[in-house]
Design a protein around this nucleic acid. Sequence first.
RNA 1: GGCCCGUUCGUCUAGGGGUUAGGACGCCAGGUUUUCAUCCUGGUAGCACGGGUUCGAAUCCCGUACGGGCUACCA
Length: 581
Amino acid sequence: MDKIRLRFAPSPTGALHIGGVRTALYNYLLARKEGGTFVLRIEDTDQSRYVPGAEDYIINALKWLGMEPDEGPGFGGEYGPYRQSERKDIYQKYTQQLIDQGDAYYAFDTAEELEQARQKDVTFKYDAGARMQMRNSLSMKPEEVEKAMAEGLPYVIRLKVPDSETVLFTDVIREEVAFDTAELDDKVLLKADGMPTYHMANIVDDHLMKITHVIRGEEWLSSTAHHVLLYRFLGWEDEMPTFAHLPLILKPSPESYLNKSTTPVLAKRMAQEFARRQPDEAKGYESKAENLALQAFQDKKNLTTHLKEKDKDDAQKAAFKAFLKSALYGKLSKRDGDRLGFPVFPLSWEGETAEDSFIGFREYGFLPEATLNFLALLGWNPGDEREMFDKAALIDAFSLERVNKAGTKFNIDKARWFNQQYIIKSDNAYLAEQLRPMLKEKGYAPDEVFLLQFIELMKERAVTLPDFVENGYYFFERPRGYEEKMIKKRWKPERHTLFTELVDGLEQLPDFSAEAIKASSEAFMEKHGLKFGEVLPMLRLANAGTMKGPAVFEMMELLGKEEVSQRMRSAFNAFDDIAQS
RNA sequence: GGCCCGUUCGUCUAGGGGUUAGGACGCCAGGUUUUCAUCCUGGUAGCACGGGUUCGAAUCCCGUACGGGCUACCA
């Protein structure tokens, strides 16, 4: 059997969404598992949505996760070019073939006319029933068509969907799926600007690039019947690729994050976003919107009931309810990251505005290995109880048959857990590499030995990379403040002198090791009849300012004698003030 | 609205005629660590509903409900 060939075919309209990354991953995994080829194809047929930099972003994201394409723009391959905008004439040729065969036709309807038709009838479909009423080469006389063409009237080419037959295809994940062509519309194949639509381009390219498996999101399931028709008309049905439609990644359910503290914030944010995105409907409705959201959120058990549109709703209310519904439920979207405070993109994206800029998993502090592992399990499982998988294990275990059918709600907590696990088992030197830039940004430049020990001490206490810096900042600078509660409870100003004696003792230590510090502290405690609980918290607080952190004596060893002594002497003065306040 | 797809703990899922319905995250409790975290132990909680088929249904069939996708000269 020939080697399998898979493709990831994103469109360069901005940052690559996490769902797209997972699609790429499944394509990549299957290609690697079967010793096949992983192709990257850029679907840039919509010039109006083209965003410069998006293609680089896609490639960088794939590289970050270790999924380099075997073929693609900049990667070589014998089936190029791999950008659809560079393949225009190829599509035109095949579209012409369909015209000649009578399987496609010219249509001259303007955007306005189509818009009107849809407005008159919401269920309007450009199909066998409607096409003779429209302006196209089927309804017009040949000479009218010729005249229109001669005049240079803009036209599109549409697929002539057969009247009434059943299109059946097999999906690896969903098994048999059937569509009646009577339900299908005459999809545009070639747009007025001469560019193909997705439907035409993807069939032609998949065939020409000898793609054997099409793994894509479920949003494509509905148009697959059109695609089958296209394969048939082009005479390629026998070599049609295997289809696999992936379950979608969904937003977390509102019930999981709505609580007393998030409710008011989210209600306000929703009202503001509504005002920004739909200014006309929102005009003068801002405060009412916030109230409505607040009420609905507070009664989260009946949230869907609150959002149901009622007959007596005015237009603004209905519009806001619809907006809320789409913001709260459904496919995970780029806005959800901002709204809920977690990344939905692999890498950060700098858009034109802050509105259009998003943080990535990388910048949020995720390790690529963890991101990959987490993503792989979003809709797939190995069939046993393992869940920690490196790339090689993933390649070994992956199969399309074990991909789920149902949509998967995004769960940031599980993602964070994965990241924590990966941080714990990562090499300190590797983590040091990741941490260096973050440290530098804060103005910290520890030497390598110090950094490695710092990581060793902190790695079990970090969920994301920035946690190292945020929770362990006091390794690089003096404590910014002291946790007062413990001081008020435990610090006795009359013991100030006593504690100074402890510092004196520590300063005499020839070897400032954790063991020596411990021994010296224990001797001190014994001499003065003090308990661990009376001394250790003070040592911790004096050096770190917080009660959270690694073992005290090890922390002190890393800080060094000089630093510890200074920190403690000045801390005790501060403790006196706090205790007396 | 129409068409298509789906539904097992709060979430991700295993299980596909006879199971004490298993695991993971989260949460709760206990232990270890005189902090925090890690780690260990335990607990919490689930087959959407209604009909069939069957000796027996979470599992098969039909319907309902609910969720999702599509319904562009976007992909």
